[in-house]
Amino acid sequence: MHLFLIYTVDGITNGMVYAAVALALVMIWRATRIINYAQGAMAMFTTYIALIVIRHGAPYWLGFVVALATGLVIGAVTERVLVRPVESRPPLNAVILSLGVLILLEAIAPMLFGGQTQSFPVPVSNTDLLVGGTSLDISPFALFTIGAVLIAMLLLFLVFQRTTLGLRMRAAAFNPEIARILGIRVGRMLTLGWGLAALLGALAGMLAAPSVYLYPSNMDEVLVFGFTGAIIGGLESPVGAVAGAVGVGLALSYVSGYVGSDLAPLGGFAILIVVLMLRPQGLFSFGRQRQV
C-alpha cells in the first residue's frame, strides 16, 4: 500500500510533465492541424540554454525565465519561417518538416553543448519531505513540478478564455477564414500560438531534466508519452490532454514499479492501444468532428 502511494505520487508528477507537452501539442494541433514532433527537441534545446545560463553563475530562476523566453521565440520563428509554407499542404508535408526540425535540433545540440549526459539542477530539494520524522513521499521539487504546470495551465486558460487576445487566437484556430474577414490577423495568431506552445514545452523540459538528465535526445520519450496522453485525451481537448497525460504518467509508474522499469513504455503503448481500440478518436473527442 505504501509502495502504491509512492508510485502514485511519482506517476502524477511525471504525468504533469507529460501534460505540459500534451497541452503544447494540442494547442498547435487545434490551431494548425499539425503535430509538432519537434516539440520535445525544442524543449531540450531551451533546457540546454538554461543550463548554460545557470553554469555561468546566474540563479536557477534566471535560467528558468531564459528557457521559457527562448521557447517562445523558437516556436514563433519555426512557425513563421518553416511551418507557414506547408500549413495549407497535405498533412504529411508538416509531419516530415517537423521531423526534419527534430533531427536538426538533436544534431546541433551536441555541436553546441557537447553530447554527453549532464545532470541538471533543481530549484528546491529533490528529497522527500519529512514531517515529524515520517516521510511524506513527496519532494519539494515534485510539488514544484505539479504546481508549476498547474499554474501554467491556469494562466493559459485565463489568457485564452478571459482576454481579447485569447478570443482572437481561439477564433483563428476554430475558423481561420471567418476570423480573417472579421479583421483578425490569423497569421500572427498562429505564430503566437506556436510560441506559447513551445514556451509550455520549455517548461516541461526544465521540469523533466533533473530526472531524465540532459542530453540531445532526452525529451524523445517525454514527447512520445505526452503525445500518447494527448491522443488518449482526443487531441482536441486541453482538459482531455491533461487527463490523458496524467493517466499515462500513472500507468508508466505502476508498470515500472510492479513489473519492471524497462517495460514502462510498453505499458504506455498498451493503454494507448486499449483506448484507441475502444474509441479511435480518443476519450474526449465528442462534439467537434471535422470529418470529410
Partner: peptide
C-alpha cells in the same frame, strides 16, 4: 495523427 501516434509509441516501446 492517431495512427501516427500509435506507431510512434510502438517504435519506442518495442525495443524495451
Amino acid at each position: 495523427p492517431y495512427l501516427a501516434g500509435a506507431t510512434l509509441a510502438l517504435a519506442v516501446a518495442l525495443p524495451q
